[in-house]
């Protein structure tokens, strides 16, 4: 939870990615189909940085791609998948079933509590539930504690202090100030509980512009910030762009087999840099995803 006071954190994507060491505990910002740190995830895979312990609340393609690349040793997420739309996450599921990845499933509220313990410098906090579920059995690090006032027995959880939080924001400045739109999901908590934030932004702007939009993560939590236009694609990053449902469908279909997933990684990740990735997706397609503002009708048509 060190502070990061260098006046200029602007880095290229490769330099930012290299701040994540193999074997790190990595918090993933955003959630489900929104504001996933995809440019950083693709960067990690290109750089071959693995043995990661990923934590987060409900996630999808970020975890699934890292799992496909064999980069995850422990997955401590509350959910990984594509909801009712595209269903289970094929690569994550395969890795968990083979046992090449430990699915140490957690709960959104437990993770929140553990991050708060880290933020407050406490050695544990109690949670309301978990007792009686099989989630507890996946976590030998949990314990039980009796309330000194009522005697009620709670499940006690230790602090969760990730080595690095990966966050994508629509805008940020060179000092590392970041603006994001609601829902912030756990990003504010990750930013404080983690040793450092490594961020990408769709646009680097002036400090005044970030301040006018509202600083959600302050510069002193951020160790590096790289500009990555459409860096959350195929997830959304409002107010910039909606999520690319068709592209997610492409991934889910191809990743049904390990060979298909490898083919996707070669084509969209290891075979290209981020400029090449955007060219593969296509300027027209990316422009289309920004068109949600035109009217409610256009927005709805994107999801048909």
């Amino acid at each position: 939870m060190a502070v990061h006071l260098a006046p200029d954190k602007l880095a290229d994507l490769e330099t930012a990615v290299a701040m994540v060491r193999p074997g790190s505990m990595v918090a993933l910002g955003g959630g489900l189909s929104a504001r996933l740190p995809m440019a950083l995830v693709r960067g990690l895979i290109r750089a071959g940085i693995g043995d990661l312990h990923v934590v987060g609340s409900a996630h999808s393609l970020d975890v699934d791609l890292l799992a496909a690349a064999g980069a995850i040793s422990v997955c401590e997420e509350s959910y990984v998948g594509y909801e009712q739309d595209h269903g289970l996450a094929p690569a994550f599921r395969r890795a968990a079933e083979e046992g090449s990845l430990e699915a140490r499933e957690s709960c959104c509220d437990t993770i929140l509590t553990q991050l708060r313990a880290a933020e407050m410098g406490l050695s544990f906090l109690p949670v309301h539930g978990v007792k009686g579920t099989d989630i507890e059995g996946l976590h030998p690090e949990y314990s039980r504690v009796a309330c000194p006032f009522t005697g009620h027995e709670y499940v006690a959880v230790p602090p969760l202090a990730p080595d690095v939080a990966l966050v994508h924001a629509p805008i940020g400045d060179r000092a590392g100030n970041l603006h994001i739109e609601q829902p912030y999901v756990l990003d504010e908590r990750f930013a404080v509980a983690s040793t450092m934030v490594v961020a990408t932004v769709d646009r680097i702007v002036s400090t005044d512009e970030v301040a006018r939009a509202g600083i959600v993560i302050p510069y002193y939590r951020v160790a590096a910030v790289a500009e990555a236009p459409f860096g959350a694609h195929p997830s959304s990053c409002y107010p910039g762009y909606a999520y690319d449902r068709d592209h997610l469908a492409t991934w889910v279909a191809e990743a049904r087999t390990a060979e298909g997933a490898e083919g996707y990684l070669r084509r969209y990740v290891t075979g290209v840099d981020e400029d090449g990735y955007r060219r593969l997706i296509g300027a027209d397609r990316l422009e289309h995803l920004t068109g949600y503002r035109d009217s409610g009708g256009a927005w709805m048509e994107m999801f048909r």
């Binding site: 609340s57 509350s78 990984v80 289970l88 968990a96 699915a103 709960c107």
Partner: peptide
């Protein structure tokens, strides 16, 4: 391996 429970167990 299913998706997981989100916040349900609390």
């Amino acid at each position: 391996k299913l998706g997981g429970g989100g916040g349900g167990c609390n």
